[in-house]
């Protein structure tokens, strides 16, 4: 039982990060129909940026803030320089562009940062908290708390503000959105900026647990994508549930089968979902086969 609980804790921790990456996918997909495979790289920029700024002597909170702002700028540039000029291209072409952008960002990150693994000190110490025979790290609580806060904030933004509604409206009907006077370009930039911020924040809080390197974005993107697909691409609640589910399955796979296959779990899940449940758990919009 204690082992089970332990696996649940570690699954929820990493699942919360996947959920945040999946939320980033969801937001951009909703506004623009683009599946942004550079989403994981925002996580890397958040983590690596904070590590290097902190190493340069900047206080941790400020370093994190600067790294997050940096990721937002990268997100806006990605939209402005790569997605916006390709307006009207097919979804497959746009996905290719984001994959290219992801490779480009990793290349730059190798030059700006380095090729080593890095970590950050845990925010509130490393003393594990005992819960029901298992233990949980304070940093895990940080990860889950931040994920919950971001989810609630995103929900309130989309449901309670006119700007959030404008984003949903742009997703629902772009022509009508333009006709009511919504500046669609700004809305899309907003989606990229907010997604980048969410990814970078996830990167900051998870780095003390999972370490970070210039290329960690790939796995985060793939698992976040798996999470978004499991939940039903485009559904924010689905993204969260999908993320937690992938995290838990991964933890159980590592704990009960073999940690060698930890990463394979997400990909087995994604294959099963694509074969048998292409709309995901929460329906969502129909997914076009490509």
């Amino acid at each position: 039982m204690a082992e089970f609980l332990q696996l649940v804790f570690s699954g929820l921790t990493v699942g919360a990060v996947y959920a945040l990456v999946a939320l980033g996918f969801t937001l951009i997909y909703n506004a623009s129909d683009v599946i942004n495979f550079a989403q994981g790289d925002f996580v890397m920029i958040g983590g690596m940026g904070t590590v290097f700024l902190a190493a340069a002597g900047i206080a941790l909170p400020l370093a994190a803030l600067i790294a997050i702002v940096g990721a937002v700028i990268v997100g806006l540039l990605l939209h402005k320089l790569a997605i916006e000029p390709a307006r009207g291209a097919s979804p497959v072409a746009l996905i290719m562009i984001t994959i290219g952008a992801s490779i480009f960002i990793k290349g730059i990150a190798q030059l700006v940062f380095d090729k080593q693994f890095h970590s950050l000190p845990a925010f509130s110490g490393d003393t594990p908290i005992a819960v029901g025979g298992a233990t949980i790290l304070p940093q895990s609580l940080w990860v889950m708390g931040v994920a919950l806060a971001l989810f609630v904030a995103l929900y309130l933004f989309l449901e309670k503000t006119l700007l959030g509604k404008a984003l949903l409206a742009t997703a629902a009907n772009r022509l009508a959105a333009r006709l009511v006077g919504i500046n669609v370009t700004i809305i899309l930039a907003l989606a990229f900026g907010v997604s980048a911020a969410i990814g970078a924040i996830a990167g900051v809080v998870v780095t003390p647990i999972t370490l970070t390197r210039y290329d960690v974005g790939t796995l985060f993107a793939l698992k976040g994508f798996a999470a978004a697909m499991v939940g039903g691409m485009g559904n924010p609640l689905g993204a969260v549930v999908g993320g937690l589910l992938i995290g838990l399955l991964e933890a159980f796979g590592a704990g009960y089968i073999s940690s060698t296959y930890k990463d394979a779990v997400a990909f087995v899940v994604i294959l099963l979902v694509l074969f048998f449940l292409p709309r995901g758990l929460f329906g969502g919009r129909s997914v076009e086969r490509v």
Binding site: L162, K165, L168, N173, L175, L179, I182
Partner: peptide, 22 residues
């Protein structure tokens, strides 16, 4: 517009409020 082009998933009132977006 032709074909109404309402914002399907949004509520009627949200559709109207978005009309005043500018």
């Amino acid at each position: 517009p032709e074909g109404r082009q309402v914002f399907g998933p949004l509520s009627v009132e949200d559709n109207l409020r978005l009309g005043a977006f500018r």
